[in-house]
């Protein structure tokens, strides 16, 4: 990296004199970086758990949501205009309004939101309707194996097997942290799949199609695991959620 210029390059009196402190600074930084690589995440966790979440959120990678959208805008839909369709291999295709969803038996879950890229928001309170209840209302036909979810962003899709979808900790959520789900967080209605990485919890949910086979979702055709269990997929070993 460091080239000492030869005699022709600089007049003799300008031969760099002194000690190569610059090189030492660089090497020290590499050492510090290696230390950070090994010890940094632990330090950060220790710090984050000892201060308020507001303070922690100011730090890099500190305990708050990061807003991801795969399209060039934030999809917006009012509660009044919102519809959730349930189609495919069902006895009774449904079109549920926001009001209809909130009139169903609510289920509350408080659990971490873990992103596959590493960030985690601890203890997020969610309220919604168990996906299993919605499926029962529509009546799943014999031979159905999976679900395909669509988003009103027009691009994002997700999938679950029927068995996964019927878990008690998989809900169609309309409330988080005690209030409505805002547009950046995928409101007014999104999926929350507690035991899986965040990309399974499709935002701006507007369609559920019951299918006979799993159709990999947006990130899954881009290399992420279809069965995205926290701690047991995507070569990560995060502590399992809930």
């Amino acid at each position: 990296m460091q080239t000492v210029p030869d005699e022709r390059a600089t007049p003799a009196e300008e031969q760099p004199a002194g000690t190569p402190v610059g090189r030492r600074v660089i090497l020290s930084m590499l050492g510090l970086g290696a230390l950070g690589l090994v010890a940094g995440p632990r330090l950060q966790d220790a710090f984050a758990s000892s201060v308020s979440s507001d303070l922690a959120s100011l730090l890099p990678s500190g305990g708050r949501f990061r807003i991801y959208t795969v399209v060039g805008f934030l999809p917006e839909r009012s509660k009044d205009a919102y519809r959730l369709t349930v189609t495919g291999m069902v006895d009774r295709p449904l079109e549920l309004t926001y009001a209809a969803l909130t009139e169903m038996t609510p289920t509350s879950i408080t659990a971490d939101f873990q992103c596959v890229t590493g960030w985690r928001v601890p203890d997020v309170p969610w309220v919604g309707v168990r996906l299993a209840d919605i499926l029962d209302a529509a009546g799943v036909k014999q031979g159905a194996k999976a679900l395909r979810f669509t988003s009103f962003d027009g691009v994002y899709t997700e999938s679950l097997t029927l068995d996964q979808a019927r878990r008690n900790d998989v809900i169609v959520a309309y409330s988080m942290e005690g209030g409505d789900i805002s547009s950046p967080h995928g409101g007014p209605v999104r999926l929350y799949v507690a035991p899986m990485y965040g990309y399974k919890s499709i935002k701006w949910l507007d369609g559920i199609e019951v299918t006979d086979a799993v159709q990999p979702g947006y990130w899954e055709v881009r290399g992420y695991d279809v069965d995205a269990w926290v701690g047991a997929s995507n070569r990560r070993s995060d502590a399992p959620i809930a």
Partner: peptide, 16 residues
């Protein structure tokens, strides 16, 4: 790239 290398050498060396 020599002028840049010369300046890099200047930047590297510290005197009293």
């Amino acid at each position: 790239g020599r002028p840049f290398r010369d300046d890099a050498a200047r930047l590297n060396r510290w005197t009293h």
